[in-house]
Design a binder for these strands. Sequence first.
RNA 1: GGAGGGAUGGGUGAGCGGUUGAUACCGGCGGUCUUGAAAACCGUUGUGCCUGAAAGGGUACCGGGGGUUCGAAUCCCUCUCCCUCCGCCA
Length: 447
Amino acid sequence: MLDLGFVRGNLEFVEEKLRARGADPAALLGDFRALDQSRRQAITHAEQLKARRNELSQQVGALKKSGQDATAVMEETRALKDKLDELDRSAASFDEQLRFALASIPNVTRNEVPTGSSEADNVVVKTWGDKRSFDFQPKPHWEIGESLGILDLERAAKLSGARFAVYMGAGARLERALIGFMLDMHTQEHGYKEVLPPFMVNSKSLFGTGQLPKFAEDLFRCSDADADSAARGEFKDSDHWLIPTAEVPVTNLYRDEVLDEARLPISLTAYTPCFRAEAGAAGKDTRGIIRQHQFQKVELVKFTRPEESDAEHERLTRDAEEILEVLKLPYRRVLLCTGDTGFSSAKTYDLEVWLPGQQLYREISSCSNFEAFQARRASIRYRPSAGLQGGSKARLEFVHTLNGSGLAVGRTWLAILENYQQADGSVLIPEALKPYMGGLDRIAKES
RNA sequence: GGAGGGAUGGGUGAGCGGUUGAUACCGGCGGUCUUGAAAACCGUUGUGCCUGAAAGGGUACCGGGGGUUCGAAUCCCUCUCCCUCCGCCA
């Protein structure tokens, strides 16, 4: 969420930034100026009347205390009531409209973010690693996985439907190894504290990070149904939603809190499964396990002072890149253009891993600086000490929040299959992962 | 699932219809004293919104929502969360 005063004072700029994202300012902002003015007038008017009411009520108290008759004053106050109710309702209505409008505006992208409408306009800022040359035709991961017996998509469909996967044997072990490896790296080398959060959250948390109210269709909502009503296709509403990313519970850890400045920056890492409805993705990436309703991810989250967020964003992105480098997986870093940058983000780098089986780079991590956008929605603040002099206390400020995948485990899994595949159909285990695989150095077909 | 008890400012904890944004203590900050520190003492110490150039003024907030009343932290309804005991359960 943007600051109301900022939008008010920079309306043209905000409109321009919305257009850069490919959004329609008129649709998002409506008649912002008029709504803002109506709201302020209504509030001012209602508060004036309340001041009068409070004054009269105190008179009643004083009169009664001194044993005098207060009926006249009580009558006058009673007469204010209808008018006040009406003004209050009108003020509340304008306020709600304005808040909704404000909550629907995406973050303002930073100036260095290239203007563009689609991923074709993203800018490659670096490329790392040499693509391996194969003396045979490299296969896509779904063929490798199925033939090794470590990936079973058909049975997953039986269990849950399309876009789910079952990992078996060394495949399941590889997924678990990657999780342990990534968490160890981030906690031991990069200074993050490990968190294991709930995999379901309430709607307030989803509002805090920006998934609600606009993107409900991308989420799975739990019905809390009993067996009978489920059989009839009826579901009870609940306020439990499956998390689409650990970003949601981890960022909301400090919702409605004032953080001690001395603790900043706070760096947290969490492994969780992630659940996405993938609304609108029908027919897209249907082969393999690129796009699933459930996938596993290790997430990096930071809370920083505003002036540090830029540097911490670079650092966090490096922390994610290092996982790829230690696994020796070729990748490139891409700066997303305005049209491809997520709703809550001011600036996003994507890391794309090379997939030889498909001959393309594929997103494996997305590292964003949200600046104060999420902190304002979730009310995560700190009291700056800098500039604090003579005992005068500085105002509370919103922290900046950042996050990035470190990494998407499922996509790392498939990247290993495609990059480390051998002519005989087996897959070598990257050196760094062997300790996590119980010493196993190759996944071969079970005889 | 059953039966009780709770939710107040950074913390502990009063208040239970009328200048109460809220007693007190702890903590924090500033000061006096001291070479310095501690102790003691004095002062100070919430947030959002509206208004204002500012100083300031106004308004709202005692878990959330609604109601009663001239007036609600205080009374009523409702929801959420926490605690204790019983039952069930990984």
